[in-house]
């Protein structure tokens, strides 16, 4: 048996690191300084644009526009890499399946079209939301008249996640130490797999009860500090979204994007390419 070493995944420390990364990696980039409502508007503009055409030239131009936005938003290489790989694999699988049913090159081109549309959508969401920290998104949702519970949930998740993961890690560790380990690993390690799956599921029994206990305090405290009151009285909402400012920069970005999208369509109309 090989020697044990330290693992750094699914520890509380790991989760805290991930959170700090989402919180801090958002500093910088084009969209980080913008009004979150404008960012959401920008995203909608980019998300709708590709669905109004079947012109491949327009789609290609929109794709390039999305890529430029991603670069301006300073999306990290890891996230971007995952996106590209995901897109590529989806295309390959679809093409393989289509060939199986007697398709030809036109099928692949057809698939290219839908993949390009989904690709533009993904690029837009990457650019917009990687640079939007959860707190700002929460305020934007409130401003856009989402229910307060949704806006609250976004920031509450931020707060609760390390606690829940720590709790879960302790419970699983308890099982790991106290439950007898499987006799052997079995074929392809199936015994070990079953052992871990069972532990993970069983861990939810104490987690349900412990979380229920702590949620009771949380909701009492929410009540005492006016959470329900704020859902009736509009003044709290006004203060919270009062910090949001739709400035000239936001207008400029939206205008430039709208212009760029129009250009994409113009380019498409000038040199149209259609499937088949």
């Amino acid at each position: 048996m090989s020697l044990r070493t330290q693992h750094d995944v699914l520890s509380v420390e790991w989760i805290k690191l991930e959170l700090i990364r989402t919180a801090y990696s958002t500093r910088g980039g084009l969209f980080a300084a913008m009004d979150p409502r404008a960012v959401i508007g920008w995203y909608l503009l980019m998300a709708v644009a590709p669905w109004l055409t079947h012109n491949l030239t327009t789609l290609a131009a929109l794709f390039v526009l999305g890529a430029v936005a991603v670069a301006l938003a300073r999306v990290g290489p890891l996230v971007l890499g995952l996106f590209v790989i995901g897109l590529g694999f989806e295309l390959i699988y679809l093409a393989l399946a289509a060939t199986l049913f007697g398709g030809d090159l036109t099928t692949v081109v057809a698939l290219l079209e839908v993949t390009a549309k989904l690709g533009v959508l993904s690029l837009a969401s990457l650019a917009a939301f990687v640079s939007l920290d959860p707190e700002k998104l929460s305020d934007a949702l409130l401003a856009l008249r989402f229910p307060p519970a949704v806006a609250f949930a976004v920031s509450y998740g931020y707060r609760m996640m390390p606690i829940l993961v720590e709790e879960f890690a302790t419970v699983v560790e308890g099982y790991r130490l106290r439950q007898a380990p499987p006799a052997g690993r079995g074929l392809l390690g199936w015994r070990a797999l079953v052992h871990w799956v069972l532990i993970t599921i069983r861990a939810f029994y104490p987690i349900f009860l412990n979380t229920a206990k702590s949620v009771r305090t949380t909701v009492e405290a929410l009540e005492a500090r006016g959470f329900t009151f704020a859902t009736i009285d509009p003044r709290g909402r006004a203060i919270r979204i009062g910090s949001l400012r739709f400035g000239p920069r936001d207008a400029a970005v939206l205008a430039v994007t709208a212009l760029a999208v129009a250009c994409c369509y113009l380019v498409g109309a000038t040199w149209p390419v259609y499937r088949g």
Binding site: A23, P134, E135, F152, S155, Y156, Y158, R159, I163, S214, V215, T217, T218, E220, A221, L222
Partner: peptide, 9 residues
């Protein structure tokens, strides 16, 4: 259990 009464980041 004051930790549970803290709800904001």
């Amino acid at each position: 259990d004051f930790q549970n009464q803290l709800v904001r980041p």
